[in-house]
Amino acid sequence: MHRIDCPWCGIRDEAEFQYQGDATKVRPAPDASQDAFFDYVYKRDNPKGWHTEWWHHVGGCRQWVKVVRNTLTHEIHATGAPAEKLSLPRKKKRGSK
């Protein structure tokens, strides 16, 4: 079970969150092309390794939490509020946080 460090609530069980997908996608400007929106709505990478994702803390503070997670090892490197810029780890770390 993932244990996710919500910036507001602290470390909580995965069961309190709803997975909300890729957090690297940025909504295009309202007047952007259909292609730009198509990319935003449908196109997703499926990275093996580090990925930045949304986990919505519906069972707690109801905040959208940004999570840098390794899809291979399930290690969580960092979590933050939506506005925070989270960087991926430079090299592979051993042991999860």
Binding site: Q18, Q20, R27, W54, H56, V58, R62, Q63, W64, P82, A83
Partner: peptide, 14 residues
Amino acid sequence: VLAHMEHAAQVLWP
């Protein structure tokens, strides 16, 4: 709908 609005308010247009 509530989750949709939270996404809009927290992520899209803070």
